[in-house]
Amino acid sequence: MEITHLGHACLLVAAGGRRVLVDPGTFSDLEGVHDLDAVVITHQHPDHCDPARVPDLLGANPRAQVLVEPQTAEVLARAGLGSRTESMTAGGVVDLGGLTLTPVGDLHAVIHPYVARVGNLGVVLRAEDEPSLFHPGDALDGDPGEVDLLGVAVNAPWAKVVETIEFVRRVGPRRGVVPIHDGLLSEAGRGLYVSHIGDHGAEGGVEVLDLRGAGTTTV
């Protein structure tokens, strides 16, 4: 599996001979992203789904399936992209031929009582003889089953580090965690969060695969 962190919550994953982009939002570097087999959008918030930039992304990837959380499908339909989108269903498996995607979840994490919760579907990516990866979107209650790699939100308005650490411990990724959702942080602040997650995400710590700025990384 090859993973490229394209900013904030956006990951480009190549596995099983397929290329999948997850959560192209406002903080994402989408320049030159091509040859995609699928675009996955976990929920409608603009840091995960930027309707102003998605049309150009899809224009550059005309064969890509666009797999989205159902409420997000409505947002994209209003932007004139309804003909390209397919709504995901929790527990349903999407077979891309060599790579499967399994949507996991229901609702976005609680931000505060004055912001309505929206739908959120994380996704597990699995290919034979390659690591599995769970990108949870913006939620800490999904149950992906056994996975090798876990995308972990480093910071968010809805996130509390003690809850993040408990999420990592509960899922128990076999290989380690991939820090994501970090676009609001200074370098020093990000480093503090990442060290907390790495030091306390399991007894004795959990491996952190920090891919920000690392380009394409094979795991």
Rank of each mutant, 00 (worst) to 15 (best):
R84A: 13
I111H: 10
E69N: 03
G80Y: 06
G119M: 04
T85W: 00
T72P: 01
L101E: 02
A90H: 10
A116N: 12
T72N: 01
G98C: 04
G105C: 07
D106H: 09
R78N: 13
G92Q: 15
L107T: 12
V75T: 13
P70H: 09
G119E: 07
T85C: 14
A109Y: 00
V66E: 05
E74M: 15
A77G: 11
V115F: 15
E74R: 15
H108V: 09
V104E: 07
L121G: 08
M88C: 02
A90R: 09
Q71C: 08
V66S: 06
H108S: 07
V66Y: 00
R78Y: 11
V68L: 05
G97V: 00
L96R: 00
T85S: 04
G82M: 11
T72Y: 02
S87D: 01
S83N: 13
V115I: 15
L99H: 00
V66C: 04
G105I: 03
A90Q: 07
H112W: 10
L81W: 00
E69Q: 08
V75W: 06
G82I: 09
R84P: 05
V110P: 05
V66I: 08
L96G: 03
L99M: 02
V75H: 08
V93L: 11
T89V: 14
P70L: 09
L76D: 05
T100S: 11
V94S: 04
V115C: 13
P70E: 14
L121A: 09
A73S: 10
A79Q: 06
Y114T: 13
L107V: 12
T85Y: 05
T102R: 14
T89Y: 01
E86A: 12
R78I: 01
A73K: 08
G91R: 04
T102V: 10
I111S: 06
